[in-house]
Nucleic acid binder design. Sequence first.
DNA 1: GATATATACTTGATTAGTCAAGTATTATAC
DNA 2: GTATAATACTTGACTAATCAAGTATATATC
Lengths: 144, 144
Amino acid sequence: MSTISQELKLFLNLAIIQTIVTKRFDAKLQNHGISLNEFMILHHLANADDEKLRRTDVAEKVGLTASGITRMLSPLEKLGYVKREANSRDARVSYVKLANAGKKVYLEAIATAEATTGQIMASVKTKKLDDLQKMLSELGATIE
Amino acid sequence: MSTISQELKLFLNLAIIQTIVTKRFDAKLQNHGISLNEFMILHHLANADDEKLRRTDVAEKVGLTASGITRMLSPLEKLGYVKREANSRDARVSYVKLANAGKKVYLEAIATAEATTGQIMASVKTKKLDDLQKMLSELGATIE
DNA sequence: GATATATACTTGATTAGTCAAGTATTATAC
DNA sequence: GTATAATACTTGACTAATCAAGTATATATC
């Protein structure tokens, strides 16, 4: 017998669902040579003012640490997907700016990401994601 | 301008929210010396028939690979939280069975996990989780 | 305007997981 | 009943991230 609340169950379910979903996106996006996290970074850059962000802000947007961002960006720089730009007012800051090659990959990857989204949504009725859907609507109904 | 669908946005949001939420649970559960994934394993064991599961089934329930489970269980065995049990009908199978010490830790950790759940829920109105809440109710309304 | 504190970023060491390959056992097909 | 394939698990090599510490710069305080 479980003695945990419905909300806690939601979080436990979210945790595994996210693990599974992330793996699927990673697998599909691999065709473009990027991970889901890399896709997210490109996405945030593409939608940012002047297509650039401070590294700290990238970290916050993708939920990783600054150090993780440094490590993630290093290969993207080498591939020429992003480039560094200085901030003239604050020498501590190093902007990450979307480069042309990165934008191209991002735009191509969108189609793949959308297709993956569709596949996952289509399978919502079965398996674990079904639980999610139920709990989400409950959550939507009870929160706030 | 973003050109991605609402559903894809949901998944991107879920990804970071889950990253953040997992970190919070991990931080709190550290008071009991366990991670969120370890808590999840104990939970599934506590709710399983005879409080035991095949390693493969544990893997499936927490969304990790069999190899990841082998590695996660090793310290839990050393701590005496779980123990191995053979299957008399199939020698390939090694059950993971919840031990007394593990059950004790699990029951204590539930309180912490519930408190953490409450804290997260309370902050839903602000920040990223607010986006989630909105999207979740939309999702709940549109899916199926 | 010197001192203390805070912020932005990077790096070395570590950790939690993956994947691919290997072992052992069981199930299937002929 | 033997050969083939599938399943359960473990292990070595690797990867993506963390944390703690360090560097450089900027901000606040007095």
